[in-house]
Design a protein around this nucleic acid. Structure first.
Length: 1268
RNA sequence: GCGGCGUUAGCUCAGUGGUAGAGCGGCUGCUUUACACGCAGUUGGUCGGGGGUUCGAAUCCCUCACGCCGCACCA
């Protein structure tokens, strides 16, 4: 037997074996070898990016593939693991361009031009590309490198061209001017899958636009209100761009007419309503110029909300917010705040029809601010509530919005009628009885303390019960006017929401009464306000304004319409009118108001600006209404001249700021509030993408039905199968795939154009005919232009493109045809294809398609695919479709999705975080085997992996252990792998053979089900805990003994187990197992293809079958014999440890059964006893520590150092535990409920347990008694 | 919003109805002839909360909370 080095040197071993495997062509697949008895097994590698370097994800992915392949080889399959790399268009071009720039070779790619740059990239690929291939080899990957492919290989390119032409002919590829995801950094279109949504904290800008009747009216540079100075108005607007920084709540204010410090600011329009003006002034005076900013109150309000007690709000008048306290103590929650206010309060109760008893308390708040009013009232839902009046209507509305937006609030604002009525729904309100109302009223009265009730107040709110809900109908609407508690009229802003006509009609009389009351008070009735004024803010000159919310004000110059929902009663009547687009300043064009169902009237203001050139949804609206498309952006994201002179040349984000400034200056800006929305980012360039209208090539996915069905039916299996759902979902909502990219490195689109300058189709065609000799009727058919037999071009004539030309489009993948086209003046489409458009052909294009190669025949469809779930759409789904489309068959039978590798903190590994260890460094310091074992051990099925170097360290330790165990065997000398004699098998031998059987079965089953971490766990347990810790230690009894026959037999068992273990380990740790396989001489005498050449072809271990077990005389109960012994050892060791004995000492065993001398010797060695006396009549000195074992009682005689108390304590502790366990079992067995219902098996188990505990208890009691 | 995954020992994770586990870490002891990258012993858990089904629940059902990941999105 050759001698193993004292230490394992992985670096030498790994490079030596890998080279040897390559030299011996161990990885090369031969289709000719495939037969019925030697089935094919194949995997195509997910081709890494040619610029890529190995990261942990690759390690995980490729280790799994290698394990699958190596095991398949051992199972006697013909294995093809087909490797290669991906040309990765954008990424590679970027890398090379950057390198060239760094080297100072170029400043811009145009310096080189297309052809030269591509040359440079090829050059780069030749010298620096494919680094990852060498790295994969370091990992031990057993790929068939002789078949390595690159997606840009000439024959692969031919496949891509062929596929394009085929799809084109099938009518699935088309060119279209559509909205695409445009990357302003890479200057190319991207597919939807390459865009990732990121949450953004931006602003929602509200600005107003002027409604005009038609587009013929003269334009005015800026809207202007009468009776106010420019400065005043600007101030007013400025005030109201303020938003709540904490909540970002919307205010619903359309009017924008209040100055918080100075009180209501009156526009001319408001002055029209005389009473209102007075009211405004009155309130202003009452609250005073130094009225609190509202901030302190806001805080308090938030605090109340946070208690969760205030769940419902009720708008009484627009300056008030009512809060109802629900719960067992209706008012207790509000009590605290109320107490503060009560001091010196003046309460004014009155009866309100809608609200029951209302008490209005006027008070100063804690900080002495005047003008605070609190209303306590009963509600129609029989819950008393408290209302806070704010010094300012605006503030109240802000709170309303705040409440409205807090999840779980039962009050919803539903909408507004044409009359301006609005409806609050209270979905959680429960209808109440008269008596409940009465009780609530009484509570409220009691609270404020016996105040007299008077009737007063305006009948401004009604509650009706409808469909089981309480509906509040109010006459309030925009500029609604009411009396306040002092009897003075006030003007309020309002929420506008529709109410069902049927409902409002029933309350016509109520409204009539209100109107009369208001007229009597000299207040304009809401009825006099015409419909068109609703929701709009009319100014003195009767201009009407619409408020629009947007996140992208820089695109206003590209707006070509305003859209409202035709069902939205607020705005429906405006459809057909126009608005004045505020930007660009020099071109404030009139653009139409269109009705479109797309508009969500619950969102924002319900008015949408339509920018067809810069938003997907807007584009569609534009199509529906035949709107003009104005593109205001350059491809690189700078605003162009169409954006106006103020914005042109600015970056889109700079432009945004500038646009806001412009709107503010002209007084159109109402406010900017914090707004969170999701913005699409280019995954690669990490910049926000720009929806951009451009001419691109699109593909309608082929073979969708089959592809969806194959997974749904389970014919193709996903592991874990939850990904099947994700796949199915995506396949259900497929969007056409934008396949063209505006880069140079890629498969160039095989489409050739000739432009006929004439827009007249016939004349254009005759021009074409002169060149080709084809007639017009030949359009859309294939022709051979070159005259070369079998070659063809598909010719299509498109009339009238944007430039008024006629385009002749020729599509072919034939070189002869291309030459001819070139000579005829055709030019090729400049775009290249999406990289995924080539990699979706990977499973068959790498195998020689379209030829019917023997490789394809033998290895397609492939068996397994191992990849990450992040490319399920990019790659997996598309490969399935391509497989069906061109091979008529699924491309693989199983897909295993790995998890994502995270760091110790659970963060995704990334370059920018720098938290990704370099696998090559790990290999250098721990070995590839260690890395492989470590990562597999921590990779449960499809779960993300928290990666820690500790795992690799553990892998390294495991390798060392394996190495040393092998060395131990070798040091024993003797022949390798001799016959095992059944007669000489010890209980330990039988035990380890049974454990090996279990391990083989477990590992095989785990691998069948892709449970790699389970497999490694079994390997670890079996080899370390069972084989090394117990079996080898027990074997020392024989190996150190003098019985040569037994010794030889034990070595035979050890060899048997090691030989199986190495094979079981090989897929996980290929290098060290190969080294030991040869180093230990397991390869000798084996046929070349059965492990003689390499362990990778040795047969995969099989458990001993029944016959073999019988032959060796191994029974299932043999496992127990050894287990009993090991338990006795554990207990004996425990004794030693308890009494702090760390020397070799004497043990005495008082056996409960006869023990062969060999077993005693094993016991002695495992216990490290010197000596171990077996004495059936042993009478221990009082206080001698002992333990009850399955083999009898073990004593640890401690002459002179007996500590009776310590031993009593120890036994006592154990006694207590046994007693409690026994008690549990007895109780269970005594319970008839249990015994009558439980299956017999469980009952037996419990019975047995009971007997065991009882026996133990008896013995422990004996021991206790012995201790005195 | 819709969907998925997860929550078990200090950490990483097994455990799909019947006596709560592994590795790492911690602590104690041991240089014992394969291995200190080792050996022996030992300490860690009301299995996220609540409810239900059951003789019995970490496991099945409901619900809530938290975390992660997709998808869809509203200007």
């Amino acid at each position: 037997m050759p001698e193993l080095d004292k230490t394992y040197t992985p670096a030498d071993v790994e490079s030596r074996w890998y080279q040897r495997w390559l030299d011996d062509k161990c990885f090369e697949a031969d289709p000719a070898r495939v037969s019925e008895t030697r089935p094919a097994y194949s995997i195509v590698i997910p081709p890494p990016n040619v610029t890529g370097v190995l990261h942990m994800g690759h390690v995980l992915n490729n280790t799994i593939q290698d394990i699958l392949c190596r095991r398949a080889r051992m199972l006697g399959k013909e294995v093809l693991w087909l490797p290669g790399t991906d040309h990765a268009g954008l990424a590679t071009q970027n890398v090379v361009e950057k390198t060239l720039k760094k080297q100072g070779v170029i400043k811009h790619r145009d310096d080189l031009g297309r052809e030269k740059l591509i040359e440079k990239i090829w050059e780069w690929k030749g010298t620096q590309g494919d680094i990852i291939i060498d790295q994969l080899k370091k990992l031990g990957s057993s790929c068939d490198w002789s078949r390595q492919r690159f997606t840009f290989d000439p024959d692969y390119n031919a496949c891509v061209m062929r596929v394009f032409v085929d799809l084109y002919k099938k009518g699935l590829i088309y060119r279209g001017k559509r909205m695409v995801n445009w990357c302003p950094s890479s200057l190319t279109a991207l597919s939807d899958e390459e865009v990732i949504m990121k949450e953004q904290k931006g602003s929602m800008y509200h600005f107003r636009v002027e409604v005009i009747d038609d587009d013929t009216r003269p334009q005015t540079a800026r809207p202007r209100a009468v009776d106010i100075t420019e400065q005043e108005e600007q101030n007013a607007h400025h005030e109201h761009t303020r938003t709540d920084p904490h909540t970002g709540c919307r205010t619903f204010i359309h009017g924008n007419r209040f100055d918080e410090r100075a009180g209501p600011y009156l526009s001319a329009a408001n002055r029209r309503t005389v009473g209102a003006a007075a009211a405004c002034l009155a309130q202003s005076q009452r609250t005073g110029a130094d009225a609190p900013s509202g901030e302190s109150r806001r805080e308090e309000f938030r605090a109340l909300l946070a208690t969760g007690q205030f769940r419902e709000l009720n708008l009484i008048d627009l300056a008030q917010i009512g809060i109802r306290a629900f719960g067992d103590e209706p008012l207790a929650a509000a009590d605290e705040s109320l107490k503060q206010l009560k001091a010196g309060a003046e309460a004014q109760p009155f009866l309100d029809h809608a609200r029951g008893v209302v008490y209005k308390i006027f008070a100063s708040d804690a900080s002495g601010n005047a003008g605070r009013k609190v209303t306590v009232s009963t509600s129609p839902t029989a819950r008393p509530y408290i209302e806070y009046e704010d010094s300012h209507p605006l503030e109240a509305l802000e709170k309303l919005a705040l409440l409205h937006e807090i999840g779980g609030l039962p009050t919803e604002i539903l909408g507004v009628t044409a009359q301006g009525d609005w409806v609050l729904a209270q979905p959680e309100a429960t209808p109440v009885t008269e008596s409940e109302i009465g009780a609530a009223r009484a509570e409220a009265v009691a609270l404020v303390g016996g105040v007299q009730v008077n009737e007063s107040g305006l009948e401004d709110i009604r509650v009706v019960w409808h469909r089981g809900r309480a509906w509040i109908i109010s006459d309030l609407h925009l500029r609604n006017i009411m009396r306040d508690s002092e009897g003075k009229a006030r003007i309020m802003d309002a929420l506008i929401v529709p109410v069902p006509k049927s409902l409002t009609a029933r309350y016509e009389s109520v409204r009539q009464a209100i109107r009369e009351a208001k007229e009597k008070a000299g207040i304009l009735s809401s009825a006099t306000h015409a419909q068109e004024e609703l929701s709009l803010f009319p100014s003195a000159d009767r201009k009407t304004w619409l408020t629009i919310a947007t996140t992208r004000p820089e695109t206003i110059p590209g707006d070509t319409a305003i859209a409202v929902n035709p069902k939205d009663e607020r705005y429906a009547h405006l459809i057909g009118k126009h608005i004045r687009r505020p930007l660009p300043l020099e071109n404030q064009a009139a653009i139409p108001i269109v009705g479109d169902e797309h508009v969500d009237f619950a969102f924002g203001t319900g008015v949408l600006k339509v920018t067809p050139a810069h938003d997907k949804a807007d584009f569609e609206i534009g199509q529906r209404h035949k709107l003009e498309i104005i593109d205001v952006l350059h491809p690189n994201g700078l605003l162009n001249e169409l954006a106006g002179k103020d914005l042109a040349g600015l970056d889109r984000f700079e432009g945004r700021k500038k646009a806001v400034d412009l709107l503010t200056e002209m007084g159109a800006m109402i406010k900017a509030e914090p707004h969170q929305n999701n913005v699409g980012y280019s995954e690669r360039a990490d910049v926000p993408i720009e929806p951009r209208l451009s001419e691109q090539w699109f593909l309608k996915y082929p073979s969708v039905k089959e592809s969806q069905a194959v997974v749904a039916s389970g014919e193709m299996k996903f592991h874990p199968d939850r990904w099947a759902k994700v796949y199915d979902h995506w396949m259900t909502g497929l969007q056409d795939w934008c396949i063209s990219r505006q880069v140079w490195w890629g498969h160039r689109i095989p489409v050739w154009h000739a432009m006929a300058k004439d827009s007249d189709e016939l004349r254009a065609f005759s021009e074409f005919s002169n060149k080709t000799g084809l007639s017009k009727s030949d359009s859309w058919t294939e022709h051979c232009l070159s005259g070369v037999k079998g070659e063809a071009t598909l010719v299509t004539v498109y009339q009238n493109n944007d430039e008024g030309e006629t385009r002749i489009e020729a599509v072919t993948d034939s070189e002869a045809e291309i030459e001819k086209l070139k000579s005829m003046g055709f030019t090729q489409d400049p775009d290249v294809l999406d990289t995924w458009f080539s990699s979706w052909l990977w499973p068959f294009a790498t195998m020689g398609w379209p030829e019917k190669t023997s490789t394809l025949k033998a290895f397609y469809p492939t068996t397994d695919l191992v990849t990450g779930p992040d490319i399920i759409f990019f790659w997996v789904a598309r490969m399935i479709m391509a497989g069906f489309e061109w091979m008529g068959e699924l491309p693989f039978k199983n897909v295993y999705f790995t998890g994502i590798i995270r760091d110790k903190q659970g963060r995704k590994m990334s370059k920018s975080l720098g938290n990704s260890p370099d696998p090559l460094e790990l290999i250098a310091s721990y070995s590839a085997d260690a890395l492989r074992f470590g990562i597999m051990r921590s990779a449960p099925l499809g779960q993300d992996i928290c990666f820690d170097d500790k795992n690799v360290e553990l892998g390294r330790n495991f390798c060392t252990k394996l190495w040393n165990a092998a060395r131990f065997r070798q040091m024993q000398g003797g022949e390798v792998e001799t016959e095992i004699s059944a007669a000489l098998l010890s209980s330990d031998d039988k035990w380890i053979l049974l454990r090996l059987n279990t391990a083989i079965a477990e590992v095989s089953a785990a691998l069948e089900e892709y449970r790699f971490s389970d497999a490694t766990a079994t390997l670890y347990r079996f080899f370390w805990s069972e084989y090394c810790d117990w079996y080898i230690e027990a074997s020392k009894a024989v190996l150190q003994g003098s019985d040569a026959k037994r010794k030889a037999n034990t070595l035979a068992v050890i060899d048997f187990v090691l030989g199986h273990t190495l094979r079981l380990f090989h897929p996980f740790m290929p290098f060290i197992t190969e080294e030991l396989w040869h180093g230990m001489g397991f390869n000798t005498d084996l046929p070349e293809n059965q492990g003689g050449k390499s362990i990778m072809f040795a047969p995969w271990p099989k458990p001993l079958d029944e016959d073999e077990l019988a032959h060796f005389g191994i029974l299932p109960e043999d496992e127990k014999t050894a287990n009993d012994k090991y338990e006795a050892v554990n207990l004996g060791r425990g004794l030693k440890s308890t009494f702090n004995i760390n020397k070799r000492v004497r043990f005495v065993l008082k056996p409960s059964q006869e023990l062969p001398a060999h077993e005693v010797e094993v016991l002695r060695i495992l216990l490290n006893a010197e000596p171990l006396d077996v004495d059936a009549d042993f009478a221990a000195t009082k206080g001698t520590p002992s333990a009850i074992t399955p083999l009898g009682t073990i004593f640890l005689p401690l002459d002179g150092i007996i500590d009776v108390e310590a031993e009593r304590a120890r036994v006592g502790k154990e006694l207590a535990k046994v007693e409690s366990e026994l008690e549990k079992v007895i109780a269970k067995l005594a319970d008839e409920n249990f015994t009558s219902k439980v299956p017999q098996k469980v009952l037996d188990e419990h019975q047995l347990r009971k007997t065991d505990w009882q026996e133990k208890l008896a013995k422990l009691r004996e021991m206790m008694a012995a201790l005195g």
